[in-house]
Design a binder for these strands. Structure first.
Ligand SMILES: [Mn+2]
Ligand SMILES: [Mn+2]
Ligand SMILES: [Zn+2]
Ligand SMILES: [Zn+2]
Lengths: 140, 140
DNA sequence: TGACATTTGCAACAAAGTTGCAATCTCCAT
DNA sequence: ATGGAGATTGCAACTTTGTTGCAAATGTCA
């Protein structure tokens, strides 16, 4: 049986509500990262825009989703994998791909973000790597 | 003599106007990347908000500045270096640092973005690497 | 200097995000 | 199973951010 939104909510000790379940199911059904607006288009008939904002924030806080900064000034969100939580801390250390042609944003789970050495004085907490280019489907 | 905004405008074959000069000078005087709002705070008394938007877009088009996507859903901008233009094309291949404590965003010109190998089918055009952490000044 | 093209400011919008509060819903202990 | 405490939601009102069209002002170059 496939993983459902409700399962994830239980795991994260969040109360189970219609909006949270539905929004999680939207993520589970999507193969690419979603912007707030993408989600709004899919369920603003059922839920208020504000609820979507708050739900996404809750998911971020709980480490259910992670955010992906894009060059188009639009943050996108994607589910975190289970293996993501190692010893109580999150590890979204994969590369993200953004297609300039179709705009799709994808987690490249199998591509690990390379380490970098920072100049003296800077302490590193997190690295974000976003690659632009052309995706499989849009290839000429 | 220090480089002035007007010099850069000439180099880029842009007409020299007060707003362009002033905004360039703000960049030249800043050691960190600036958001639209940062610039607005410094000169909205002299120029319209719309002018700032259009000026930043022009600078982007001409390769005078580059944009930095941040996790806070706010694009920041920074001047490109001269050496940035190699054979007519831009090369902003350095890492950016974003301090979680003070929010400052800095170009780490000396840290080159490492290459990554993408899965089959993806073609790469550009890589963006943003590192979060604590900057020199904010260090505990 | 003057014509012409470019740039700017303004006004009016549209879209995105935030906040407070009352109504509703979840969950847990009885 | 029920009900009450606390969490969640919808709504309204608002702020901030970004866009567009157009007329006035400015810069460029002959
Ligand atoms: Mn991801
Ligand atoms: Mn930079
Ligand atoms: Zn594509
Ligand atoms: Zn700092």
């Amino acid at each position: 049986m496939k993983k459902q939104g409700a399962d994830i909510l239980k795991q994260s000790a969040l109360s189970i509500t219609a909006s949270r379940k539905d929004i999680l199911d939207i993520f589970l059904a999507s193969s690419s990262a979603l912007a707030h607006q993408d989600i709004e288009l899919k369920c603003s008939d059922k839920f208020d825009r504000v609820t979507i904002y708050r739900t996404l924030q809750t998911f971020l806080d709980k480490g259910i989703i992670h955010s992906i900064p894009t060059t188009e000034n639009a943050v996108k969100y994607a589910l975190c994998k289970d293996e993501c939580i190692v010893s109580g801390h999150h590890h979204d250390n994969h590369v993200h791909f953004l297609c300039d042609a179709c705009g799709i944003t994808i987690c490249l789970e199998e591509v690990v973000v390379p380490q970098v050495k920072l100049p003296k004085g800077y302490s590193l907490k997190d690295i974000n790597m976003v690659v632009n280019g052309t995706c499989k489907k849009c290839k000429a």
